[in-house]
């Protein structure tokens, strides 16, 4: 039995050697917002945060995460869909099928926490997720809009 801290909760999990974090999150913890799409860290649909850093959980061994590391999944990004990235995505109707979007949103949120006002070039190099529906134009607009939303709420506060 191992312990993982997911979305602020400490959870006991059974981790067989080599089991990727993705499958522990989906099948043991039951949080299915984090998606399986390629299994080889090519597409980013499985992106979660470990201590705020974007990680492709499909190749990240669950056994290498310690209990004091904070895992955040799409379900834990905000309580109510109010993270600036989620707000921006809602405003622009960014998702199409939506399957890649939890990963896209987690990657974008991590980008914004490390680079609060990313340039288009930052977005090009940091957002390397695959979206077969092709939402990139609204993803890019959404990242810029999330910056505005963040700045506005900071001004209000």
């Amino acid at each position: 039995m191992a312990k993982l801290t997911v979305n602020g909760e400490i959870i006991d999990v059974e981790v067989e050697v080599g089991t990727p974090l993705l499958w522990v999150i989906r099948e043991q913890i039951g949080l299915t917002g984090t998606k399986y799409a390629c299994g080889i860290a090519q597409c980013g649909a499985c992106t979660v945060h470990i201590d705020g850093r974007a990680v492709r959980s499909c190749v990240y061994p669950a056994s290498s995460v310690s209990a004091d590391q904070k895992i955040t999944t799409i379900e834990g990004l905000s309580d109510d869909g109010s993270h600036p990235v989620q707000q921006a995505w809602a405003e622009l109707d960014t998702p199409q099928c939506g399957y890649c979007q939890p990963g896209m949103i987690m990657a974008s949120a991590a980008l914004l926490s490390s680079t609060p006002n990313p340039s288009d070039e930052d977005i090009n190099t940091q957002i390397t997720n695959i979206c077969r529906c092709g939402t990139f134009q609204r993803v890019r607009e959404g990242i810029h809009l999330a910056v505005e939303i963040t700045n506005k709420s900071a001004t209000k506060a």
Binding site: L31, T32, L77, G81, A90, D93, P95
Partner: peptide, 14 residues
């Protein structure tokens, strides 16, 4: 849209 932003949308794989 909204379910797709929070991970609540249930796809076949889920």
């Amino acid at each position: 849209t909204l379910e797709k932003l929070t991970g609540k949308q249930v796809y076949g794989a889920d």
